[in-house]
Design a protein around this nucleic acid. Sequence first.
DNA 1: CGTCAACATAGACATTTATCTAAATAAGAG
DNA 2: CTCTTATTTAGATAAATGTCTATGTTGACG
Lengths: 125, 125
Amino acid sequence: MSNIKALPLLEPEVPEGVAPCCPPLTERPLTAEEAERTAAMFKALGDPVRLRLFSLVASHEGGEACVCDISDVGVSQPTVSHHLKKLKEAGLLSSERRGTWVYYRVEPSVMAAMGQMLTAAAPAA
Amino acid sequence: MSNIKALPLLEPEVPEGVAPCCPPLTERPLTAEEAERTAAMFKALGDPVRLRLFSLVASHEGGEACVCDISDVGVSQPTVSHHLKKLKEAGLLSSERRGTWVYYRVEPSVMAAMGQMLTAAAPAA
DNA sequence: CGTCAACATAGACATTTATCTAAATAAGAG
DNA sequence: CTCTTATTTAGATAAATGTCTATGTTGACG
């Protein structure tokens, strides 16, 4: 009980730019507040149309796409806009207007944080 | 064009027991069918109560927990059962009855596959 | 200013979902 | 077989959600 404050190396698996969200799901039970915030992010990816839109943005050249590039997912244009807004509210996308077009891009740290809650958790068995 | 079949090393970042689900979200746009299947998994973790239950199972000693161990999340016991069923239908949990109790455990390959869709995707910017 | 194009907002509507209570099933103890 | 405990199923209900059409907003271009 002498080196409590000294060593911040206890979680070495987390890369640099990862948002400080929550521990891996296997580490300890999430609190109610943690679950509330984190579930909101997973929920944002829990709709097929939104997941496709997200994938379209994430895989687009330059890491960003304007709405006109990704509007072909089988729903009306206002519905696309609605889903993009939800992804933005969840913190997964950010948007910027440049002239006539609005460009969306992924928020890499948030995605990485979500991924680590799952991958850093796997080999607990 | 001579070693097409020889080298399965083209996706070296995917560990062994990972379920063959979908590519990283940054690799290419998901098809409608892929999005449908994958969104169902993310959706399962998109509810605060379910996420807590999942975390409780995942972090429990031995990688499994009986329902009686994890029923304290603020909702009624039938609601807990309902959510566990959903997690099971999504492929994230499996269950086994042993005597009086039913034990739930995480499906590591599915979790890893979900994690990789996010983490293998991050540094595309 | 007027018009067109890209995108967002508002409101309506049908479906899904999370939750509860009540009842059913499963298994061990006496 | 009966009683008790653990868990699931059934049915009801209020709230959330995804989608649409119609309309508003913003910026570029004559």
